[in-house]
Design a protein around this nucleic acid. Sequence first.
DNA 1: GCAATCTTCTAGATCGTTCTAGTCCGCTGT
DNA 2: ACAGCGGACTAGAACGATCTAGAAGATTGC
Lengths: 344, 344
Amino acid sequence: MTKRATLADVAAAAGVSRALVSIVMRGAPGASKVTRERVLAAAASLDYRPDTRARLLRSARSHLLGVVFDVDGPFHSELVEALYPAAAARGFDVTLSARGPRRDESEAARSLLDLGAEALLVLAPDSTPEALSALPVPVVSVLQPQSDPRLSSAATDDAAGIALAVEHLRGLGHRRIAHVDGGRAVGSEARRSAFARLAADDGAEPLVFPGGPSETDGMGAARTLLALQALSSPAELPTGVVVFNDDAALGFLHVLGTAGLDIPADLSVVGYDDSRLAALAHVSLTSVRQDPDALAAAAVDAAAAALDGRRAHTLVPPSLTVRSSTGRPTAGSRETRGRHPSGS
Amino acid sequence: MTKRATLADVAAAAGVSRALVSIVMRGAPGASKVTRERVLAAAASLDYRPDTRARLLRSARSHLLGVVFDVDGPFHSELVEALYPAAAARGFDVTLSARGPRRDESEAARSLLDLGAEALLVLAPDSTPEALSALPVPVVSVLQPQSDPRLSSAATDDAAGIALAVEHLRGLGHRRIAHVDGGRAVGSEARRSAFARLAADDGAEPLVFPGGPSETDGMGAARTLLALQALSSPAELPTGVVVFNDDAALGFLHVLGTAGLDIPADLSVVGYDDSRLAALAHVSLTSVRQDPDALAAAAVDAAAAALDGRRAHTLVPPSLTVRSSTGRPTAGSRETRGRHPSGS
DNA sequence: GCAATCTTCTAGATCGTTCTAGTCCGCTGT
DNA sequence: ACAGCGGACTAGAACGATCTAGAAGATTGC
């Protein structure tokens, strides 16, 4: 377990000063081509790696991005992984801090600041814009758009995502399309109002069921739908549903499945996030997919811009992953089999 | 955006030297009670927080633990969250680095070393023991037991976990119990041999289906079982199955469910990890639960011991979360309904 | 031929801590 | 009375990098 090499070691090996080695390692101007190569060779032979701690301590710019994420937030894992190459490509390092039931956002943020992060990327922040902008470094709200001029943001265009889902269903022939919303969850309002706008464009009354971000919320919405089904005429019932996210969609599907509905023959369901869950064979949920690489690039760019004093608010277009929870509506299929078939 | 306070600021405010403030902040001996309180009051009024970078740079012991985890590894998220309080209780800070399809273990480890981590906790390492022990700091293998004397480890007692599952099934009245193994996945060998030992104790031939860690692997094992079912007499078929992990169990359940089997009437299934998946209402899988707090505490203790030159190898007992994928065997239920009922 | 300029390089200060090696002071024991 | 001791405190070096200011040598301008 030998000690790691320092700038001074490399300098001695190459026969130059420490300052010059620093210049070469940073790729800064001020070194001739030949010495540059000599220094790099010496560094390589000593297996030199700059010490992040010392670099952070001294330099005004630390080039370290702090990322606050949820340990099991939907889509967070894909995004975190995409952030590493995106940051590296722009000359940043990345350090992570997890938020969770036992560790809140401000605590996670503080520990990143102590490590010297010069900007923070907060994935789906749950603090207020005031609290975020009070931090002593620029903050980028990722996955949640922000209008606050003191913050930056990089998020998916939720209106476009809802539109993709609705247009997919319309293209399949669905005419009555409902939305199960996200309650008071982050992003719920944007998706709900986008849905309402689309329905209005079509001249229809928007059909929105109250929901939420969790499986349980989806199950509640499904029970509401079943109750409605017992009262209304089939022509008024939706044949396609866009659910707030995959978790809720899963609960929604579960209740309808045990009630005997056939998916997608009786009802087409679209989720949101294209999470691991949606891809399971057992679930196979058509879902709106957010683009992790584009979001990561936009987030890092926003951080870089914020460090130069400019605020950026980027919206990234989503795509749609079609699986087997959506299909053409089969008119009247429910009547032929009775309203509450007791599937077992 | 005012600059953050330093030791010197606190020292000036309290009318003492920087060194004494340092002593007080670290809780080190060498300060009288009255000045200690005066310094703490000054620090609080200035909202002083020690700068991790400078502290790391100067002190031999950095008290920083680096954690390498999988962005979507089963159980990793729970464990990561449990690590924060466990480390804090022992005077360590935690910093994370994600491993994933696009970022390998050694790269993740290197970035932690550059930040000054004095020991590494690697969750379910995929490098060889040689590679891990070649790192210049102590390494703790978490979730995977190690026999290598150069490493430490903190893992769940897989033999006990398999025993819990098997005994649960036996207690329900199951006599023929099978295992779907994890193929070449981490931990598969331990669980398979534990299962074989239990079967041998019972005087039975161990019934092991080749599987793997993924949903697809579980689906394959289920098809093997269905093929066997078409050939054998019912008395020879298993009524209970212990699957390598929850992901595989999910695929296993999916194929059997679409083939018309009733779970748990026809077959009881136990998973492993008690992941978020298992808890979904849609799945409701009985599963072996690993204890995140106990594992986190053992892992941090192992790191602390390793820093003192001692190696520790801890096994933590698991528990069983019983859900609705297991129940009493209903003798002959399959015969009365035919072998391949076409459920829909 | 001499000053001005550019390029290449270096010495030394600096970031905010911790650590080492003291100083100062009051107390004790003989 | 004086060495010895331990508790409270401090000055200044150190950690490993970056940054500022400036020196040495080559090149250019007039």
